[in-house]
């Protein structure tokens, strides 16, 4: 247990020592907020006016914001797992692997480290809320935090598994881009995914990011106040192969996803010697 916490703490500690990383990774989400939120906002808002048939208090940025936060969580936690490859290159991984800390604790410690860093990055985006005209009440915020952390753990375990089987930084980046980008686009994080071809629908349904984004949207947006048409049009009525999706179901799906990946990563650490 203490070994796991030590490994966790180390990655968080190193994050604070590396300021460039902190700010470098904020440009992308901010850019996307501008492009999708402000740029597309106008047309999406008038579209929704038509759907709802009348005047409507609708802020598209409020829909995009949870998506962008999820995306930041995904990118940061997956990329933080790059630390495993660096640890290997600089030899520190051997110090960890030769210690009596159990392999599960190593995997969990690494996951928690990446997840914590990602949540901190995600929370930084909340500082932009006043500028964007997005609000959140305190209760929702405290419901949101554990959800964000769970999501970040899921994404971190994905990064962990990728890093545990790939040996070079370059290859890691390629693989991550090939996996992470589609996961973002097929999740409804940036735009609603309605009327997609069936095969894309399957991918969207199997994508854990879909449920993470959906959870975040349901917590952050006052959905009760939306008309049924807007609710559907914004892709908030998800179903899992015909079964309506519930928040609990979404949480379980994400936990299941994380558990499977952690088991696989642990197995990979059991074989590793570097």
């Amino acid at each position: 247990m203490e070994g796991m916490i030590a490994i966790w703490q180390r990655d968080v500690m190193k994050f604070f020592k590396d300021r460039a990383r902190l700010f470098g990774s904020m440009t992308m989400p901010i850019l996307l907020l501008i492009v999708f939120g402000v740029g597309m906002g106008g047309s999406m808002e008038s579209l929704m006016q038509n759907v709802a048939g009348g005047d409507l208090d609708f802020n598209y940025v409020a829909f995009i914001f949870p998506g962008i936060v999820s995306m930041t969580l995904l990118m940061t936690s997956v990329f933080s797992s790059l630390s495993i490859i660096q640890d290997r290159d600089f030899g520190y991984m051997r110090e960890i692997l030769v210690s009596p800390v159990s392999r599960v604790s190593i995997a969990l410690g690494k996951m928690l480290g990446s997840a914590t860093v990602a949540v901190m990055q995600g929370l930084l985006l909340f500082l932009l809320m006043p500028v964007l005209g997005v609000t959140i009440d305190l209760v929702s915020f405290f419901v949101l935090l554990p959800v964000m952390f769970l999501l970040a753990c899921a994404f971190a375990s994905l990064g962990l598994l990728i890093a545990s089987v790939i040996s070079s930084t370059q290859a890691f980046q390629l693989v991550v881009n090939a996996i992470v980008m589609p996961m973002i686009f097929l999740s409804g994080a940036l735009f609603p995914l309605n009327n997609m071809p069936a095969w894309i629908d399957v991918l969207v349904t199997l994508n854990p990011v879909t449920y993470g984004v959906d959870l975040m949207k349901h917590i952050m947006i006052d959905v009760d106040q939306l008309s049924r048409e807007v609710y559907v049009e914004m892709g908030l009525d998800l179903d899992f192969f015909g079964i309506p999706v519930t928040p609990l179901g979404e949480v379980l799906f994400i936990i299941g996803f994380t558990a499977v990946l952690i088991v696989l990563a642990t197995l990979s650490f059991s074989r590793a010697n570097r």
Binding site: E2, G3, K14, K17, D18, F90, Y92, E95
Partner: peptide, 21 residues
């Protein structure tokens, strides 16, 4: 070399203490 060069001497040693209980 298997030290964490971004950390201080003390941090390296403390981590080791924790890993080895």
């Amino acid at each position: 070399n298997t030290l964490d060069e971004k950390l201080t001497a003390k941090e390296n040693l403390m981590l080791h203490c924790k890993l080895y209980r």
